[in-house]
């Protein structure tokens, strides 16, 4: 990957993190941990990979689509969409307020750029399958992306969708699993482990690629590889850190769904600003 582009994507990913933190802090509610863990993936998707996105025409029928199946991480999705120009960045601080269109979970009716309403875990991946098969039926060559949580894999519906995607050879579908090893009640292995994730998807006849979910180059390469795989959907198993880039949030289950206070918010932003600054002078 071109060095300039790589740096740019890394900066965007961290700007998405800042938007997500601002959203949750302003609302005093929301999910910072899982938002910080998918920011790099969103940066590569929205700023390098997804085609035919037009903020002036968000429902362009030929666009690539993204379903955030782990809908509680709307703060990161909204951050990416605002960066892309689908709506003003200033609106992010109205997240979850009664007067705002920025609903707590992605809302395709009200938020420009959101391709599917999600929030109930396990359903988004099925909707992504529907979009992918519709693309095949209509002879369109758009691609469909989905992002799932690793805890979300405990929903049986995910596996119904996995079977469906393989049966109908949905090679226009690429799903990410944010493998951050945490859900609400703790580590996956202490709740109801869905491991091994790679072997399960392989057994379900998916092409599986394992990457570092915070390395934009690896994310990009995996998506490129997925585009070359014919007759199968691809699963990108992204090793991620919940709360990535905010030291006191990293790997801490309590930051799944709680908002930072003013001090914590400022400390978090300072850490990310420092990362951005370092990238800028690189």
């Amino acid at each position: 990957m071109d060095k300039v582009l790589k740096k740019e994507l890394m900066i965007i990913a961290n700007r998405i993190r800042k938007h997500a933190l601002l959203a949750v802090y302003s609302a005093n509610s929301g999910h910072p941990g899982g938002s910080l863990s998918i920011s790099d993936i969103l940066a590569v998707l929205y700023f390098k990979q997804m085609k035919n996105l037009d903020p002036k025409n968000p429902k362009n029928p030929d666009r690539d689509r993204l379903v955030l199946s782990k809908g509680h991480c709307a703060p990161a999705l909204y951050g990416a969409l605002a960066e892309k120009g689908f709506f003003p960045k200033e609106d992010i601080s109205s997240f979850r307020q009664a007067h705002s269109y920025l609903q707590g979970h992605p809302d395709m009716k009200g938020v420009p750029g959101v391709d599917m309403s999600t929030g109930s875990l396990g359903q988004g991946i099925s909707a992504a399958c529907g979009m992918a098969i519709a693309g095949k039926l209509a002879n369109k060559d758009y691609r469909v992306y989905a992002i799932l949580g690793d805890g979300e894999l405990e929903e049986g519906q995910v596996w119904e969708a996995a079977m469906f995607a393989a049966q109908y050879k949905l090679d226009n579908l690429t799903a990410f699993v944010d493998f951050n090893n945490l859900q609400i009640d703790g580590k996956l292995c202490d709740v109801c482990s869905p491991l091994p994730i790679d072997k399960k998807f392989e057994a379900f006849n998916w092409h599986v690629i394992t990457i570092d979910g915070h390395d934009v180059e690896q994310i990009d390469n995996a998506i490129e590889e997925a585009k070359t795989i014919k007759g199968k959907p691809t699963l990108i198993l992204a090793n991620c850190v919940k709360g990535k880039n905010v030291s006191f949030m990293e790997n801490q289950p309590q930051w799944h769904g709680s908002a930072p206070n003013k001090e914590q918010y400022e400390a978090a932003v300072a850490e990310i600003d420092a990362i951005i600054k370092e990238l800028e002078v690189m």
């Binding site: 609302a27 509610s29 929301g30 809908g71 979850r96 609903q103 707590g104 979970h105 809302d107 309403s117 999600t118 929030g119 109930s120």
Partner: peptide, 8 residues
């Protein structure tokens, strides 16, 4: 439920 919104 409040802030989580319609889905919840």
């Amino acid at each position: 439920v409040g802030e989580d919104g319609a889905s919840h």
